[in-house]
Write a protein that binds this DNA or RNA. Structure first.
Lengths: 202, 202
DNA sequence: TGTGAGCTACCTACCAGTAGGAAGGTGCAC
DNA sequence: GTGCACCTTCCTACTGGTAGGTAGCTCACA
C-alpha cells in the first residue's frame, strides 16, 4: 500500500479520461506516455496489453461506483434523496468540467468491437446500476414517496436510459447544463404528489 | 444519375455500418476496401480524407432522416401515430439486426475528438431531431392527445435522451428488445388519459 | 540477491494519404 | 469512322507515421 498515487493508478486515471473522451480506439499507449511522462514500454510493464489495461480500468470504475452507491445508501436514508444524490454526482462532474460521462456508457456504444473481457464488465456495470436504481425506486414506492407507473425494474431501466441519453445530448449540443435540464424533470415525474409539494416549498 | 448504387454510395453504406459498430476511430479505409472489394487508394479517389468521408456520410444520413421525418408527417396525420412510427423505425431496425443505432448518437459520444466539420453536423442532426419532436409534441398537445408536464421543447429533449439511452442499454445488455421496453412506456406516459383508453382497447 | 520499475531499441502490422499509370468510356473534329 | 483529347475509375507501389507489443538492459532498494 503506497501513500502517494502509484504509477499504475496514474496510468488508469489518464486512460479513463482518454476513454471518456474518445472511447476504446480513441487513445493509445503513446497518449498515456505523453501525459504522465514515462516511456511506452514502461506502461506495458504495468499493463501488458491494452485489453487488460481497459479491463482493469473498468473493474476499478465498477468497484468505485458500487462502493459509492453503497455508502450513499448508508449516509442518506430517504430513497428520494439517494436518487437525487446520485444525479448530483454527475451534475457536479459536469460543473467541474471533469468527465461528464460514464466510462461504461461510452464503452457500451462500442460493445460490438470490444474485447470480450471488457464487454462483459461493461454489461456487469449496467446490471449493478440497474439493480441499485430498482431497489431505490421500490423502497421509495413502498414508503409512498414515488408513484411508479411500471414495475420498479422497468422504471429503473427507463431512468438509467434517460441519464445516459442526457449525457449524450449534453455532449452533442456542447451544453453541459442540458444534462440537468433533461434528467431532473424525469425524477420529478416519479415523485408522488405530496412529496412534490414539500420539494417545491423549499 | 446512375441506376445501380454507385461505388461512392457503397462506400458510404459500409462506412456507416462500421461507424455504428465502432465509432470514428473504429474503422479504417482497409476495412471498407475489404468489404466492397476495391483497393484502399480507390476509396481515397472518392473521398480524399477520412474526415471528408465521414462528413459526407453524416450529411447524407441527416438528409435521409430529415426527408423520412418530413414524409412521415405527410403520410400520418395524428401526432401520436407520427411519434409511434418514428420509434417503430428503430424497432424494426433492431428486429432486422440492421444498425440498431443512430450514427449521430454514436458519434455524439466522441464529439471531443471529432473533426470540427463532423461534430457540427452531428450537432445539427440533434437540433433537427429535437425540433421535429418538439413540433410533433406541441401539435399533439394542442389536439389534446398528449398531456405534457413541461414545455414541448423540454419534453422533446427528454424523449430524445430516452431513445438514445435505450439504444445504449440495448447494446450493453446485448438485448435488442430492451429498446422497446424502455421507450414505449416513455411515450405512453405522454398520452393523455382518454387517448390512452382507446390505445389500450385495441 | 533478488525484484520491481523504468529505460533504449527494436519488431511487425497497420494507418491515412500520395504519385503515377492502365483501362474504359464520351464527345468532338476531321 | 478514325483519331484524339479528356474524364472517371481503379489500380500498383510507395511514403511517413503510429499502432500494440517485445527483448533485454540499468538502477534503486530491501
Amino acid at each position: 500500500m503506497k501513500s502517494m498515487t502509484s504509477t499504475s493508478e496514474k496510468i488508469l486515471d489518464i486512460a479513463q479520461s482518454l476513454i471518456v473522451a474518445g472511447g476504446y480506439n480513441g487513445f493509445s499507449y503513446a497518449d498515456i506516455s505523453a501525459a504522465i511522462g514515462i516511456r511506452r514500454a514502461s506502461i506495458h510493464h504495468h499493463f501488458p496489453t491494452k485489453a487488460e489495461l481497459v479491463s482493469v480500468l473498468v473493474d476499478r470504475y465498477r468497484r468505485q461506483a458500487e462502493a459509492g452507491l453503497k455508502s450513499l445508501g448508508e449516509q442518506v436514508s430517504s430513497p428520494a434523496e439517494q436518487l437525487q444524490s446520485y444525479l448530483n454526482y454527475w451534475q457536479t462532474c459536469i460543473r467541474d468540467a471533469s468527465p461528464p460521462f460514464c466510462v461504461c456508457a461510452m464503452l457500451a456504444g462500442e460493445t460490438q468491437m470490444l474485447p470480450e473481457e471488457v464487454a462483459s464488465q461493461v454489461r456487469a456495470h449496467f446490471h449493478s446500476l440497474a439493480s441499485w436504481l430498482t431497489s431505490v425506486l421500490s423502497a421509495g414506492a413502498e414508503q409512498g414517496l414515488f408513484r411508479l407507473n411500471k414495475r420498479p425494474e422497468e422504471e429503473a431501466q427507463m431512468l438509467m436510459a434517460s441519464v445516459h441519453g442526457a449525457m449524450l445530448s449534453a455532449r452533442a449540443f456542447g451544453d453541459p447544463g442540458l444534462f440537468t435540464k433533461i434528467v431532473n424533470p424525469q425524477i420529478t415525474k416519479l415523485l408522488s404528489p405530496d412529496c412534490l409539494r414539500t420539494a417545491q416549498s423549499r
